[in-house]
Design a protein around this nucleic acid. Sequence first.
DNA 1: TAACGAACTAGCCAAATGGCTAGGTAGGGG
DNA 2: CCCCTACCTAGCCATTTGGCTAGTTCGTTA
Lengths: 228, 228
Amino acid sequence: MDRETRSDVPLGRRMPQATTRIVVADRNVITRVGLRSILERNTGFAVVAEATSYDAVLDAVDEHGPDVLIIDLDLGDDTTRGLKVVEEVTDRYESTKVLVLSNTLSEMIVVEALRRGANGYLCKESVKADELGHGVKAIQEGETVLGKGVGSLVAHSLGSSRLHAEHLTDREIDVIKNVAQGLSNKQIAAVMFISESTIKFHLQNASRKLGAHRRAEIVHRATSAGLL
Amino acid sequence: MDRETRSDVPLGRRMPQATTRIVVADRNVITRVGLRSILERNTGFAVVAEATSYDAVLDAVDEHGPDVLIIDLDLGDDTTRGLKVVEEVTDRYESTKVLVLSNTLSEMIVVEALRRGANGYLCKESVKADELGHGVKAIQEGETVLGKGVGSLVAHSLGSSRLHAEHLTDREIDVIKNVAQGLSNKQIAAVMFISESTIKFHLQNASRKLGAHRRAEIVHRATSAGLL
DNA sequence: TAACGAACTAGCCAAATGGCTAGGTAGGGG
DNA sequence: CCCCTACCTAGCCATTTGGCTAGTTCGTTA
C-alpha cells in the first residue's frame, strides 16, 4: 500500500530495510514468548501485537496493519473459525501476509488454509528456529512457504482425485461427535430429535467424504483432521 | 526442609538465593525458547540444558543433576515412554523435581504421572507466564503444583472408584489402532495373525478399562488420552 | 510352588451397523 | 425456472458388533 511512498525515497536515505511488523496469534503464552524471542533475535523483525482469540486477531490486524500475521488456527472452541479468520484477513488486508503455524498436520486443514489465502504453513513440532525467520522473509517476497512434511501433504492432495477435500456439513459433524461418545444410531436419533434413518444417512455421507467405511474410522479421521 | 540450615547462616552473607538449575525437555523449539525466556526473566532461574528426546533427557539429567526438570511427556513415537522417563528420573535422582508440561489434559496421563513421582503438572494451553516461575519455586519447596483444571481432574479421579486408571496393555493398543483404521475384527485378526476371538477379547478388556461400550468410543477415548 | 496377569481361543445370540435403493422438503444461485 | 445442496425419511439384508461364559498357555512375582 505504501509501496509508492517508499519508491519516492532517495536510495541512499532509504530505511536500512524497514522492519517487518508482525502480529502473533496463539493462545499459548509460551509459544508467543518463544516466537517473539526467536523472531526478534534477527534484527528487522518486530512483533507489534499478540492475540489470543479470533476476535483479537481481527482487532490487532485492523489496528496495526502488520506485514505478517503468524497464526495458530486453533484459537478457541470453534475449530473451523481459524480458517475463516485467515480468509477474512487475506481478503481485507492485501498487504498482510498470513503464515499459519499449527501443531497438527491434517491434509484437509492445510489445503483449506492455502485455498483461503494463507501464504505459508509451518508445523510447530518440526520447525527449526532459523526456518521461522527465513520463512517470514520468503513470504514477504511473495513466496509460499511450506514446512517439512507439509509440502508432500499438499502434493498428495493434488494427486488424489478430490482436489479440495470435501468438508463435512455441520449436521454431519454433530452426528460424528455423538458417535465418538459411543452412542448408537438410535440413541443419537433420540438426542437430535430426528429419525434413525437420518443418522445413517449423515454417516453414509460422512463416510464417503472421509474415505472411511466404519464408524470407528470416521471418528478417527474426523479427530485427526481437527474437526471434532 | 532446610529451614534449620538456613537459620544457621549469618543473614548478611547468605547466598543471594542460589540459582535454580533447570533442564527443559520439549521437542518444539518455540516452546523451549519461550520457556527459557520466561524463566530467565526472573533472576534465580537458569536453564542449563535442553532436550528433545527421551534419551537426551536422561543424559541431560545425568550430566547436570538439575534442581528441576520441566518435561513434555510427548517426546517421541512411543507415547508411554514419557511416563517411564518421569519414573526413572524421580527414582534415581531424588533431588531433581519433575514438572510435567503437557498440551493435552487426560485424566489417565495426569494420574499416572503423579503416581510415578511427578511433582507438578501444568497445561501449556492454560498456563500463565508468572505461574511458571511460581510453580517451579513451589515445587522446589516440596509442594505439588497442579495447573488450572488439572486439580479438579485429579480430584475426580480420586472420587471415582478406579483410583489409578487401568492402563491398556500393548496388545490392546495394537488392536485399537487397527480399529481406528476402520478394520473389522476379522481383518484385524488376519493382520495380527491371531484369532478373531482374541480381537474381541482385547476389545472387551479395553472397553472395560476405558469405560466405553462401542468401538468408536474406544477409539475416541484412546485418542484423547494420547494413547494412539 | 502357587498365584497372577497377559495373551490367546471358542461358541452363542440379540442388537447394531454398512451398504444399498428410493424417495421428500426447503433454500440459494445461475 | 431449474439445478444443486443440505437435510430428512423409509425399508431391505448381509455382516459386524457387543456382551457373555468357559477354557489354555506362558512368564513373572510372591
